[in-house]
Simulated assay, not measured.
Amino acid sequence: LPKYRGAAPVNWAIINGETETGLTAFFLKETVDTGDIFHQQRVPITANDTFDSLYERLCAATGPFLLKTLERVETNQFTPVPQTDDEASYAPRLRPEDALIDFGFPAENVRNFIRGMATRPGAYTFFRGRKLKVHFCEIADTAGAPDTRPGTILPDRRRLLVQCNRSAVALTKVVPAGKREMDGQSFLNGYHPQPGEVLGEKAVEGEVRP
């Protein structure tokens, strides 16, 4: 605080490409997350952190942080610091429908979005009309032509490459509908996606797709 006030600060910090987050002890006020701060601890966000890994690390840090906070309260060794509203940002609650991947952004933004959603609520797209969850990806060292439609599957025998905005990502951990998590190579071997197919197109109600 005061950054990322709201229900989903961990998700949004990763989605926005932040390199650190933290824990904050503060006094309660009527408005959410606006009270005076009396103890904080910074926690780094690594380049490969997902929501799950960062949340787990924050939980592990919470116990020692709470003990230190109580010690400061008991000994009156703290000075409340008012939050600066000019520095505030917001982290609204994420709904399942908010996790739909937009490949129209640059690859770095797409990767951050997928990391920030993994695995709760879980980033997803559609493959042949059925939901395909994406738990992790990497920025690819190649991409299609500048006019290639975002979401287009690119030719590659070993990687599940998807066009973004003048860049591409390799989907490395995916969960097809009704299946367990698998790597990109396993998805290629099992589902045989064809170059030129486009991710993100949901089947029309009543439509049957292979």
Rank of each mutant, 00 (worst) to 15 (best):
E197Y: 05
G200M: 03
V43Y: 04
E181F: 09
G17A: 08
F103Y: 12
R180Y: 12
A91V: 06
F187T: 10
I101E: 09
Q194V: 04
R130T: 14
T172E: 04
A118K: 02
I114Y: 00
A123W: 00
N165G: 06
E197D: 12
P82M: 01
F38C: 01
K133W: 14
E30C: 08
E71F: 14
T142M: 11
Q185M: 12
A107P: 10
I14M: 13
G22V: 08
S53W: 07
S167E: 02
Y55T: 12
A177D: 15
V134Q: 10
T21N: 03
P80L: 12
A177I: 02
G196S: 02
L132N: 08
R5W: 05
A170I: 02
P9G: 12
G104T: 10
R157M: 09
Q194F: 04
Q41G: 02
F136Q: 01
A140H: 05
Y191I: 11
T19L: 01
H192Q: 15
P82T: 08
F78S: 15
K68C: 07
F78A: 07
I45P: 06
D36I: 05
P176E: 00
Q163Y: 12
Y124T: 03
L154T: 12
N11G: 01
D52N: 02
I139N: 06
Q163T: 02
P80S: 09
N11F: 02
L161G: 06
T50G: 07
K29S: 10
T24D: 04
V134P: 01
L54H: 09
G35T: 13
P146W: 10
A7D: 13
A118P: 00
L70V: 12
T79L: 14
G63M: 11
A61S: 14
K133P: 00
P64W: 10
L161Y: 12
R130Q: 14
V110R: 04
P44S: 15
